[in-house]
Nucleic acid binder design. Structure first.
Length: 430
RNA sequence: GGGGAGAUUCCAGAGCGGUCAAAUGGGGCAGACUGUAAAUCUGUUGGCGCAGCCUUCGGAGGUUCGAAUCCUCCUCUCCCCA
């Protein structure tokens, strides 16, 4: 399989350095992607890089994941309008080990084959690099003029920038370049991949390799993933969409992909799944026949959820979606047995309230705010209720003064509260 | 160091000393429509015991029957000159 052609039809190539394709055709190549360990879980913004590496491995090459322990301590100025907060070493180490576990799901690290992936941490070679050594061995080879010409730097030095840029951040490209150089020397790594915002940093690396080692190294960047409505990809109102099921439940995760727009779905399915061109072309064709069925979104959500989570998690998410958004009525809801009910609402916020408090009935406002904390403000609740935005057990509530009592409990235990169409909360009585 | 401008509710940005919980736009939330979409339309967007009350307009004081609007000091931001 031709890696470059593969990425190309998937729309995953933004810029590619001349000669890269030839190199990959000629020999088994090692490439790396850097990931900043700014949290103890990856989010779907990281997924593009991960997919690049995955395709790379499938194409018969060797991927390296570089966890940026050192670079994470500095902060990349690319795309940032202000100085990053620095992380301490303990946090970084913790984050690294968590990320490592997540990545093992995507790539083969263990097989012992020559294409088995590796993980490295640049902290390990940067930590003993003295400042003197650094400015002599690295700084010597790159001019400030060259560094200043990078967009990431120019942007921060321009008139519009009110923040300025610290020397630390200015140095970032050298540190990243050092990574590339190090991997080039120690592991024969000749290719670095990343988001298009990394182009400048990557070329500093290839430049270093050229000047210091008279070597040739290459670069591929992928386009920034965007959403057709212009909002930043990978964010929901609640924030990032994480791979960690503790942070983003598989159900929410599945829902994220399911809710992607038609236009985005066509692009995403190429990027985030391993489906072949034929399969995808057929899906797109089918989808265009009956857009309301959202075949593309469903398949996309399916594939990605399995890849990131498990088949079981997907089954749950699909079932939950079916019950929540299908023709499910108050009636079918009340027929659910407890086990199904709980599995469907896995990950939905749940609060426990003493059953005795429900026995005599309790004001809906008090129940949903003071008792459970689901809503901070009773004014907001009143507004929602007035506007038909609150349901209990799928029944619209339109009177803020009404009482809720234990006769309404599903299975004698649960109340399903709904805000709008998509936000659910569960109250458990015991 | 000198001179100027400004700090308003999530953001932007109005705001005659009373009728300002504060225009307008954006964003958010909800409703209708729909494909759990987009577009559109509608409502809403400080809190509460909600036809009333309470706390807000950088901070602290003051003038006044009454201040986001006037005065004083403080803090911070931006711009220009040196």
């Amino acid at each position: 399989m031709n890696f470059v052609k593969e990425l190309s039809w998937r729309g995953m190539i933004h810029t590619i350095m001349p000669g890269t394709e030839e190199l990959l055709q000629k020999e088994l190549t090692t490439a790396y992607v850097g990931i900043d360990p700014t949290a103890d879980s990856l989010h779907i913004g990281h997924l593009v890089s991960v997919m690049m590496l995955k395709h790379f491995q499938v194409a018969g090459h060797k991927p390296i994941v570089l966890v940026g322990g050192a670079t994470g301590m500095i902060g990349d100025p690319s795309g940032k309008s202000k100085e990053r907060d620095l992380l301490d070493e303990e946090t970084l180490r913790h984050n690294q080990s968590c990320i490592q576990k997540q990545l093992a799901k995507f790539m083969d690290f263990e097989s012992g084959l020559h294409t088995a992936a590796e993980m490295v941490n640049n902290y390990d070679w940067m930590k003993d690099f003295s400042f003197i050594d650094f400015i002599r061995d690295i700084g010597k080879h790159i001019t400030v003029n060259y560094m200043m010409a990078k967009d990431s730097v120019k942007k921060r030095l321009g008139d519009e920038s009110t923040e300025g840029m610290s020397f630390t951040e200015f140095t970032y490209q050298l540190v990243q370049g050092t990574d590339f150089l190090t991997l080039y020397k120690t592991k024969g790594c000749k290719l670095q991949m990343g988001g298009s915002d990394q182009w400048g940093n990557i070329t500093t690396g290839t430049e270093l390799i050229r000047r210091k080692e008279q070597g040739e190294a290459f670069a591929i960047t992928c386009p920034l993933i965007t959403k057709s409505d212009g909002v930043k990809f990978g964010k929901t109102e609640e924030g990032n969409v994480w791979l960690d099921p503790e942070r983003t439940s598989p159900y929410k995760f599945y829902q994220f992909w399911l809710n992607v727009s038609d236009e985005d779905a066509e692009r995403y399915i190429k990027i985030f799944t391993l489906l072949t061109k034929n399969e995808i072309d057929m899906l797109i064709e089918e989808h265009s026949q009956a857009k309301h069925d959202r075949l593309l979104q469903k398949r996309l959500a399916r594939e990605v959820t399995i890849m990131v989570h498990t088949e079981e998690a997907l089954a749950m998410a699909e079932e939950a979606s079916q019950i929540l958004f299908g023709k499910g009525t108050a009636d079918t809801l009340s027929k659910l047995d407890e086990a199904t009910f709980l599995s469907v609402f896995e990950g939905v916020p749940l609060k426990t309230v003493p059953k005795s408090e429900l026995d005599n009935g309790i004001g809906i406002l008090e129940l949903l705010s003071d008792k459970t904390g689901f809503f901070e403000s009773k004014s907001e609740l009143r507004r929602l209720i007035k506007g038909n935005g609150i349901s209990i057990n799928k029944n619209k509530q339109n009177n803020a003064e009404t009482n809720v009592d234990s006769t309404q409990l599903i299975n004698g235990k649960y109340l399903l509260v709904q805000k709008g169409k998509k936000d659910y909360y569960i109250i458990k009585a015991e």
